[in-house]
Amino acid sequence: MNSRVTDKIATSIFVLFAAIMAGTLFALLGYILYHGFAVIDLDFLTSNSSSFREGGGIKNQLFNSFYVLFITMLFTVPLGIGGGIYMAEYAKPGKVTDFIRTCIEVLASLPSIVVGMFGLLVFVAWTGWGYTILSGALALTVFNLPVIVRVCEDAIRSVPRELKEASLALGVTHWHTIKTVLLPAAFPGILTGVILSAGRVFGEAAALLFTAGLTTPNLDFTNWNPFNIHSPLNIFRPAETLSVHIWKVNTQGIIPDVREVADGASAVLVISVLIFNLLARWLGSVIHKRMSGSK
């Protein structure tokens, strides 16, 4: 066969592969959103779920998802930034740094179900808390921390070396330089990474099954006392998140309208991830523009 014919055939195969991939992925997004929009309305988002009757909503699950995400970020962001600073600024090439890098790699590659099992062992059983939001958030912290550490390390490393030298040459200490020059300059990168990872945390289910549990107590949204079991803010209560809910209604649900609830919940989940994604891109570019001084 002549090489030009082979080239043509090969090119068409690559185009075909890309088309199959893009087609599958678009079909998938389209399917979710199309079926979801048929279900989602204000009532669906704001009514309680039902365990056996039709017409349940996802109010508590939606709240739980955001609340667990918030608590997780409360732990992950400071720790992740600290770890990122360490890796970018303090880690000297050598055995200790290699070891920490290995630890990050281990944490990043653990299957989320394994993280969930660890959470069950330590945050649920050993502490005696039982299934709680706090246990779930701590498990998700383990799951998310390596991502944030990498994001922060990359963002800090990508700050031009000249800026750091300028500050050091003015007799400012390394730590103060980190706080006032490096972190602000790395902020857009960190923010983008944090929001993207928030999308991942938001959709995670396997790590939460054994830590935050499969149920939610009756929540009274007028009760803002974080120590009351019926208060949505209580971090020592079990909480079923949106993704866990999708799994639960599909595998053990006895409600007759499984399909509708799952359609709606999946679409809400996907839309949330889309929003996180777009928000990250948009905020990243806006802050970048503002900081680089172009008007």
Binding site: E162, E165, A166, S167, A169, G171, A185, G293
Partner: peptide, 17 residues
């Protein structure tokens, strides 16, 4: 303290953002 008494200016202008 030393760097406050002995200042340095670099090749590429490097103002802080």
């Amino acid at each position: 303290a030393l760097r406050k008494e002995i200042g340095m200016v670099f090749q590429k202008p490097n103002p802080f953002p």
